[in-house]
Amino acid sequence: MDQLQFLTWVRGPGLNLALLVFVLGVLWRLIEIYGLGRKTDLSAPRHVPGASGWATIARRSLPAPGLLKSSPVTYIGGYIFHVGLAVVVFLFAPHVALVDALVGVTWPALPSQVIDFATVVTMVAMVAVLVDRHVKWAKRFLSTFGDWFAWLLTFLPLLTGWLAVQHLLLPYTLMLALHILSVELLLVCLPFTKLFHAFTSFGSRWFNGTMNGHKGVPV
């Protein structure tokens, strides 16, 4: 298989396979988790404005009082790399074109210099949170192989994408193929790793918000 054949495979059968595993995996995991259900709360509710699952989904995007100071890298690094990822994934012209080709939906993209900058900033933020995971006691203590692996899964598409656009290290065709392959790896693994929080954190916030909201506590 030469470089072009490799690229053709990752763009065609590879992508289809990855998308299939991703979609089925996500559905399976959602059913596996939310299918367990929960008991109805029989205690008399207390109604307080802002105490609801939906409010908590929004509210938990902001740091709890005082914690920005104790976990600055987690919060600031976390914001930067999440927003950065969203910008790079959804607002880079070739990505927009890909979505258009796949499902026929399109939206305006950002200039490539902006994406370039966003990619570098995102990668720097990711390195910062990685270092923080190593130096911060509680974080390091909690860390398992899954945490380092999930980091790598997220970092590789950024790095290979950036290298491909910059024409660095490897021939463009090969680097682009590696970039797409790394995205496919991410798609396949996402439902079965901690990266699945991309879906469940909304459900978790909602449960916490609803169950405490029942008590009249806006959490």
């Binding site: 995991r29 988790i33 299918g35 259900g37 978790s204």
Partner: peptide
């Protein structure tokens, strides 16, 4: 239950 499963699935350490 579903909340517990959701919580475990969401933890990013």
């Amino acid at each position: 239950d579903a909340p517990i499963a959701s919580y475990f699935s969401s933890c990013v350490h």
